[in-house]
Design a protein around this nucleic acid. Sequence first.
DNA 1: CCAAAAGTGTTTAAATTACACCCATGG
DNA 2: CCATGGGTGTAATTTAAACACTTTTGG
Lengths: 232, 232
Amino acid sequence: MKNLKKILKQYFNVAVSVDNVVFGFDADGLKVLLIFRGSEPFTGSWALPGDLISPEMDLEYSAEKILKQLTGLDQVYMEQIQTFGSVDRHPFGRVFTIAYFALIKVENYHPQAASWAKDVAWFKVTEIPKLPFDHREILEYARRLLKNRIRTQPLVFELLPKYFTLTALQFIHESILEEEFDVRNFRKKILSSGIIEETGKLQKNVTHRPAMLYRYNASKAKQLGFEGGILQ
Amino acid sequence: MKNLKKILKQYFNVAVSVDNVVFGFDADGLKVLLIFRGSEPFTGSWALPGDLISPEMDLEYSAEKILKQLTGLDQVYMEQIQTFGSVDRHPFGRVFTIAYFALIKVENYHPQAASWAKDVAWFKVTEIPKLPFDHREILEYARRLLKNRIRTQPLVFELLPKYFTLTALQFIHESILEEEFDVRNFRKKILSSGIIEETGKLQKNVTHRPAMLYRYNASKAKQLGFEGGILQ
DNA sequence: CCAAAAGTGTTTAAATTACACCCATGG
DNA sequence: CCATGGGTGTAATTTAAACACTTTTGG
């Protein structure tokens, strides 16, 4: 048994981190949240909000806690996406990183840099600065995943405010899928799916005809088996 | 810098393992490959073929190597699926495990127990023995994933022999999706998709009308954008 | 000639696509 | 009254679903 422990020691000397790809959405389109690193390595560069996991903490909990510590974001939709494990991806040693994606309603949350994050900002997915580690690869992986999922899961409602217009719903689909849809057909499809409902409320303070506001009906979506999706 | 290293030390004392969910398919339906453990912990139980990763090895490479070492299987279709990281999932310490699924053509490969695996066998997915660690959870996750993917990616051809009948192709879909299809409609859909082609060959030594053998046309599938799937 | 599985077409219903104009509001 | 985006319907095409009998082989 002593012998066994000795053998095992050679394995118990790596670290594991979490990196979060936080997506948000506003009038400009799809955004990703980055932090400005105030800690080694790569101090002074923008990066995905991520950190090493303390060995005594559960994985899911770590992912949430790390995000909260660096950006203040709490209670957001998160999902594990993939683990990246190249030998040389971290200069301090062998670090496997488990990537998560998170979707947030930009209007409801106001990220604030904390801990060793010196700044935090939204970047358009088309205007991402140079990123350290393999964060670029992780980000692109997350984008592809989001694109694939969006057709078959009602994820967009995590990105939109509680009340939203059909135009916004269409725009978010078009932004993520990089594809345009016919207005009438899009509306027909969404409305006939039954997963969103009218609220009777109207947009205010707009310089044009105000749009009707809709709301996601989660219970109906579930009842209809909507992990199966919106489009397609 | 000394100080930094000291702080980091507390993180670099966990281990990472790989667990492989190897699916195969034969006349009985969908199978999973398990090994009989001849090593601590859980010596003497059937488990997913998996092992700790050596810190100096890349992740993808480790996954392949571990599978080969325990079962002899080489050059199989593998894909990372999810990482499991509960604090207490391994009795020897904090071990994150990265689950992979693999799909193999049962007829072409003959797994053989090696290293500390004392035996290896196929189990029907409906008749799985008690598994150690969180292997049951991992296996169920993999099954769900396979079920979701099979509709939108041409994965079944990794499970079928090179030449196969349309009946076999339909049966594998039905087994994985736990749903039945109309023979005529199924054939129409598959054939009109263009991703499989006739070979002119016929089944031999069967006690009924021999079926035409077909072959997957990978290049055509790719050209048609078939990461997008077979059914639906 | 029997058993066992292979193979094949048509009709109906549902879903998807293409397409152009009027409406309501603020400035 | 103008600019801006909101909102609406129909016809044509494509795709999916339902459904039953004949064929070929080995034993």
